[in-house]
Amino acid sequence: MGKPEGGDATVETAPGNGTAAPRPAVDRPWHAPGGDGRRTRAVRVAVSGALIGATVLAVLLVPPLFPLDQQAVDLTAKLEPPSWAHPFGTDEVGRDVLLRCVYGMRVSLLVGVVAALVASGIGLAVGCAAGALGGRADRLTMRLVDTFTAVPHLLMGIFIVAMFRPGIWPVIASVGLTHWVSTARIVRAEVLSLRARPFVDAAISGGASRLRVAARHLVPGVLPQAGLAAVLMVPHAIWHESALSFLGLGIPAHEASLGTMINGARGSLVTGEWWPTLFPGLFIVVPTLALAGLAGAWRERINPRRRSELVL
């Protein structure tokens, strides 16, 4: 697949019995067999990182640096296509779509990150407890998790949101309380596999208590996996927030969130005005893909298919 780094890096010698080969010409180039897969990976990481960095920067810097009112309604300029004044066009009441996308992303990122942390925290705790205790406690916990899984996420999310006034925190709670299940499963499986390793036997034989084995050998061993699950959870949470907002159950309709924007612009899509829906949609999709790209690279790092790349 790859190209050799240098030319033909060989010296032909008469086939003998292998003991009388002449000393090699010094400083012949080294050859990279099978190419260098790390280069494509580096490009992927760089692009994903740049996209995420740009998004985060925009979200953090635009509001303080450009004191524009995202709610500023301009009925003389409603549903204008993209132009220099409004790069992403304007929506049905003349608000700037770009500005509202940035503010919407702010809400979405906040919800995504906090909800992912909450969900992963719960998942890590439940998974570790189930895996480390084992036996009856494990079976009971996992049946509980199964029961939880049986109810559709969105339905339960709607139920939780409906109990409170619309706002950011109910949405975070709704996402966090429904999404820990997958993390719990991943963590438990990982803990179970670690628990069967002889190094746990060695620790027990060395006098370690149950708590110490869990805290020193099991939990640190699953943290990379749990971290990966948490990162992958962020886009998931963003989507969930958008879905709730789209249904009118999440963020109040007048506040910019990617979901409320798409919801509000639904009507204009049929009449051919594509920009108020496309751009918020892209704001959901592109950072999601970038995050997935970063998470994928991370996964390859902690779980290399070719062991000796990290080993030796």
């Binding site: 890096a9 060989t10 260098d36």
Partner: peptide, 25 residues
């Protein structure tokens, strides 16, 4: 079967003189 961070030098000829192949390159 070397991993991606390996670099090789020299040759490993496989097969008879007429039909030989350097497995490293």
């Amino acid at each position: 079967l070397l991993p991606g961070n390996a670099r090789t030098r020299g040759a490993a000829w496989l097969g008879p003189a007429g039909d030989r192949l350097d497995v490293l390159t």
